[in-house]
Design a protein around this nucleic acid. Structure first.
Lengths: 177, 177
DNA sequence: CCGTCAATTGACACGGTGTCAAGAAGAGGA
DNA sequence: TCCTCTTCTTGACACCGTGTCAATTGACGG
């Protein structure tokens, strides 16, 4: 349902109706809308085998390869989780729990960025001018969901273009030489 | 008031009270909350002399200088408009008019990016691999408000760091050589 | 047969936006 | 002085979405 509505405007009553159940029944399982949203993201992560997808990046032989694999993973993953991410992102403004849940996911993204940057650094391939910290911050920011949204929706980039150009961008920006 | 609350949680009643006027009086001047928000951004642009601030970038002698001046302008401007931008951004999800107003501002940002990229291209300084369009999209995305927010709030970058590192990033990514 | 558990119905509180109607206060002109 | 226009006030209300509560029903298992 979130996917059908771009992550917006899905109410508890809509969900209940779609599940063939009363609105109150939903509250018997999820105390708040945010809790339901968070459960949906967890479910999605499990269903999509988040950890498995990350394995390819972790197994990379070089820093640059790791960076590229990570961008490939992310470019493939974001569109799948986008709608629910969008909903969580919107809820964040008014709901403390949603903000925390979003923070967790962003921390995980940062871990991946950090690992890629450290792999680069260990190869001596981190471009001059960046510390591991600042490079991590940059990569982390490049991969933000709103940026993906902007590029694919407002700029009309395809998923493949996103991956290819993001690789170019990150490589030019962060990799030495 | 928006600045005091990070652009969130400011209600019509709060505004009225702060203005020493009844809530309904506000509605005599602005039909909707969004209209008031949009008026506030216009007011802010005029007060901050948006056009004047852009002049320095427009007067740049080279493409690279123009790019750098534009990033300096933006890095100085965003923190000043951030709270109201945040509010507009939040309203965008539920309000068509807010989405349109935001779209306008983003289009203006894009125009600036486009001009900088074309200046680079005309100098023959646009890095291989980018078309003017894709380079514009990239720069446009780098400067997005959520990214600025993320870097300054979540990553703890200062305004000066934002400008300096964004210049580095954009230069490495887009400028040849 | 009884207890438990999940679900149902219907009502309600709350918070925020936007609307409406009746009236008050002041300014300016005939 | 009176009249009118404009602006504002007060207070009520509709609407929407979330979350709560209470009373009830129906199925399943010991």
């Amino acid at each position: 349902m979130l996917e059908a509505h771009g992550g917006r405007g899905v109410r508890m009553g809509d969900i209940a109706r779609a599940a063939g159940v009363s609105r109150q029944a939903v509250y018997l399982h999820f105390a708040t809308r945010t809790e339901l949203l968070v459960a949906a993201t967890r479910h999605l992560d499990a269903q999509l085998d988040l950890d498995g997808r990350l394995a390819r990046s972790r197994a990379a032989g070089s820093g640059v390869e790791r960076l590229h694999r990570y961008i490939e993973f992310w470019g493939d993953y974001v569109p799948r989780i986008h709608a629910v991410a969008r909903a969580l992102l919107a809820a964040r403004d008014t709901d403390e729990a949603a903000a925390a849940a979003w923070g967790d996911r962003m921390a995980a993204l940062r871990d991946g960025c950090r690992a890629a940057v450290e792999a680069l650094r260990d190869d001596g391939a981190l471009a001059a001018g960046w510390s591991a910290d600042s490079a991590t911050d940059v990569l982390w920011t490049l991969l933000l969901v709103p940026s993906w949204e902007h590029l694919t929706r407002d700029c009309g980039w395809t998923g493949a273009e996103y991956v290819a150009r993001m690789k170019t961008l990150a490589s030019r920006a962060l990799v030495a030489g």
